[in-house]
């Protein structure tokens, strides 16, 4: 069980992360708020509770690795990295602007970014490469890959699902941000993914389903993944696209549209952040 104090701390970081996402995307004038807001708790729990990492030494060899395969959620990753201390929070204002270290999709010019995702469906395979190298080098670091649910329509995800089991990659954890929405609408209308857990089970992964906003469930799942031997774990986190902003929730329209600057204070007020 988590200490109540830890839980409060994580909740506070999550609230601040949502605020930074809204502010940075509004400032940029473009970007993907929906899928950034939906996965906040999943990523905050990794960087502020679970992962071994050192913002002062981003290339530390034994650090755990996080790959944001759904690269369009870059504003989320940047907000978390900044709060963790990889770079000043002020930098978030430069998101998507010419000359910025904060590219529209993750890029190595940002300290702490492990992989330049953007083209969907590749990240889990890259995570396999990292996990294989860890085993080869006898290193204990773990690799976490956050996938979008729409991303699983890419066939390569299932190629990777096969390969991770072949190599018994118990040091690899996939996290699915199951918010049910992609750019054109509901995933189940565009190209149905269900029964999703059964698919991963059929590929012989250890499957855990959780509420993607309950920190205790999230951390419990990360711990169980670490304890599971000889096979990889996938955590299917049930989430809500646009979580926290009433008019963005469950709205495909907010997959890739920035709020206007004049909307920001209203949004923050509604979220209880003003």
């Amino acid at each position: 069980m988590m200490q109540a104090q830890d839980l409060l701390r994580l909740k506070e970081i999550a609230r601040r992360t949502r605020r930074l996402i809204i502010e940075s995307v509004a400032e940029a004038g473009s970007g993907h708020p929906g899928g950034s807001l939906s996965a906040v708790e999943l990523v905050v729990a990794l960087y502020f509770h679970k992962m071994r990492h050192d913002p002062k030494n981003p290339k530390w060899e034994d650090r755990d690795r996080f790959i944001l395969s759904k690269g369009h959620a870059a504003p989320l990753l940047y907000a978390v990295l900044a709060q963790a201390g990889y770079f000043p929070i002020e930098e978030l204002k430069t998101l998507r602007k010419l000359g910025s270290m904060l590219q529209g999709h993750p890029d190595f010019r940002t300290p702490g970014v492990e992989y330049c995702a953007g083209s969907e469906g590749i990240g889990l395979s890259v995570g396999i490469g990292l996990a294989l190298a860890a085993k080869l080098d006898g290193k204990g670091y773990r690799t976490y890959v956050l996938l979008g649910d729409g991303e699983m329509q890419e066939g390569q995800v299932w190629e990777a699902a096969m390969a991770a089991v072949k190599y018994r990659l118990d040091n690899l954890t996939a996290i699915v941000d199951r918010n049910g929405i992609q750019q054109d609408g509901l995933t189940e209308n565009i190209m149905p993914l269900e029964p999703l857990a059964a698919k991963w089970k059929a590929f012989n992964w250890n499957v855990i389903q959780i509420d993607g906003y309950d920190f205790e469930q999230i951390i419990d799942a990360y711990n169980k993944a670490e304890e599971t031997l000889n096979r990889p774990t996938v955590i299917i986190a049930h989430t809500t696209k646009g979580k926290g902003v009433s008019f963005m929730e469950w709205s495909p329209q907010w997959h890739g549209q920035a709020p206007k600057k004049e909307q920001v204070s209203k949004i923050l007020e509604e979220m209880g952040l003003l």
Binding site: E114, V126, L130, L132, A133, A134, D137, A160
Partner: peptide, 10 residues
């Protein structure tokens, strides 16, 4: 892509 991951790890 797996080759890319292996290269990322050095």
């Amino acid at each position: 892509s797996i080759a890319a991951g292996l290269a990322l790890a050095g």
